[in-house]
Design a protein around this nucleic acid. Structure first.
Ligand code: MN
Ligand code: MN
Ligand code: ZN
Ligand code: ZN
Lengths: 147, 147
DNA sequence: AAATGATTTGCAATATTGTTGCAATATTTT
DNA sequence: AAAATATTGCAACAATATTGCAAATCATTT
């Protein structure tokens, strides 16, 4: 896996402290992060506005991808090395555990294609499964993020 | 299809002006509505708070269902008559048109089941397809909601 | 390594969105 | 129609998001 430095370089971004720190959080995190997780993380001291701008930049650069939710938040998770600006490769299923509230990328579960009515032209498909995750069926203590 | 009055009755809800008006909006709408669509609709004069509470009540009563997005909004669409409180039957695909920004329930396209890794217990699955809708391939004028 | 130019950051101000308690009003039940 | 129950609107507040701009940081050139 690439180092933060390389990831930023490869994306053509300046290598700044904020960006490295936020990338570190994603590497350390179990599962996806919301803006609030980052902003409120104990060891972090980055302005809200910078967090907003960093997340946006990372999405546009193919470093992280977004996961849609029904609670007025957006979740973000690291992309595979193969993602590029404007051209993501993240058509895997996302799993939201309703017990521990963690969201996992199921990298090995591809989103199936589905036949649409005539005239609908698909470009990108997201699939979000809610349920109980493997950790919550046979539980053990959980690290960051705590929600 | 049921009348507003019957829908509210069947759900065990009081039949109020606000609720009938908001239900009317959903019937008139092409596609899903966000809170903001309702609040800002020209002919409507219902307090923000009432709109929030009405949407929440409708979801809990199985009158509307939520559609996840990646833009800090939640979309809502009418459920089928067969939905009940706490037990929705809306496992159809949702289509978000990136041209006209309308979101449609593809009622006839069921969400496929997908094999998850061992230990993950699915309860509910959402599938959101982004692309170009049929109206935008062979366009004609569009009514509410305008976004 | 210092100077230069370009980019990013933090702050302040503002805007938008969401929540809560409570009195007034509307609806349902008796 | 009166009583009981539920809903609504207002006000106050809280949380989240956006913008402009000056200061700080980073990349590039010398
Ligand atoms: Mn993912
Ligand atoms: Mn739907
Ligand atoms: Zn879990
Ligand atoms: Zn369209």
């Amino acid at each position: 896996m690439l180092q933060q430095f390389e990831i930023l370089k490869k994306a053509g971004l300046s290598v700044t402290e904020s960006r490295k720190t936020i990338l570190d959080l994603f590497f350390a995190a179990q599962g996806a992060l919301a803006h609030a997780d980052i902003e409120k993380h104990s060891s972090i001291n980055i302005d809200r506005v910078t967090v907003y701008r960093t997340l946006q930049t990372f999405v546009e650069s193919g470093i992280i991808h977004q996961i849609p939710t029904t609670d007025n938040t957006i979740l973000y998770a690291l992309c595979k090395d193969s993602c590029e600006a404007g051209h993501h490769h993240d058509e895997h299923v996302h799993f939201i555990c309703t017990t521990c509230n963690k969201t996992n990328c199921l990298d090995d579960v591809m989103v199936p294609t589905v036949k649409l009515p005539n005239g609908f032209l698909p470009i990108q498909t997201a699939m979000i499964v809610k349920g109980t995750c493997i950790d919550c069926k046979s539980p053990h203590p959980q690290p960051f993020p705590q929600r």
